[in-house]
């Protein structure tokens, strides 16, 4: 069962619908216990970074952090990715989960903001489980005003008033700035890749675990 975390930020209908479409068994939940028991977690997000404060208030933050620590695959979408960073200029008083170092920053005044529309993914060197079967240069749908800088774990970047992280991937932790649930066949393929990651249960050491269906 995949837990789609509901933290009252925007609507989750389209994420749920896309997971249904790729045949994944998922549930929309705001219950920390359901999150703790999930095989995988998806943290969607549209809207304001400050909405993520609800994750800490509701106990979801701890549940997510503990579950990630046990090696359960996690996918953050849009604000969900931004929350995996330390913080965001959009709401400096709200801490992110801090999986990756740095701050989300606003687009420069030289470009219109929000960045809305279909932009290209440019893959960096190195394998990605999330992007399996997807060609570099593919178009995906973005809508956001803040962006994650390029990181050591960035596997795909995009360009809009400068380069930024479009896909970040480290061990079982994945984040995408665009909306795979709104990116047509490419987005569905990415979600399918995430949903079909197989994780050998019973071990806590990521080095010992294997993703059996990695190409």
């Amino acid at each position: 069962m995949i837990a789609i975390v509901d933290y009252r930020a925007g609507n989750l209908t389209s994420v749920k619908k896309a997971l249904d479409q790729v045949g994944a068994d998922s549930v929309v939940t705001s219950d920390p216990e359901v999150v703790s028991l999930a095989e995988k977690i998806v943290l969607p997000g549209v809207g304001h970074f400050s909405a993520t404060a609800h994750l800490a208030d509701s106990g979801l933050r701890d549940a997510i952090a503990n579950t990630i620590r046990r090696g359960v695959p996690f996918l953050g979408i849009c604000v969900g990715l931004q929350w995996m960073m330390e913080s965001s200029e959009e709401a400096p008083e709200v801490p992110g989960l801090g999986i990756w170092p740095g701050e989300c920053v606003r687009f420069p005044a030289s470009v219109k903001s929000p960045h809305v529309g279909w932009n290209q993914l440019e893959f960096r060197d190195g394998p990605s489980r999330l992007l399996r079967g997807i060609p570099s240069g593919s178009y995906v749908y973005f809508t956001h005003s803040y962006r994650v800088p390029l990181l050591a774990n960035t596997v795909a970047e995009s360009e809009y008033g400068g380069r930024f992280s479009a896909v970040v991937e480290q061990d079982r932790m994945f984040g995408v700035q665009f909306h795979p649930e709104k990116s047509g066949a490419i987005g569905l393929r990415l979600l399918e890749n995430f949903c079909s990651l197989r994780v050998t249960a019973g071990s806590c050491d990521p080095e010992v675990l294997t993703e059996q269906n990695v190409d």
């Binding site: 925007g10 549209v46 809207g47 304001h48 929000p114 809305v116 005003s145």
Partner: peptide, 8 residues
Amino acid sequence: ANRFGSQA
């Protein structure tokens, strides 16, 4: 915009 985000 506050409830669903400006993008919506």
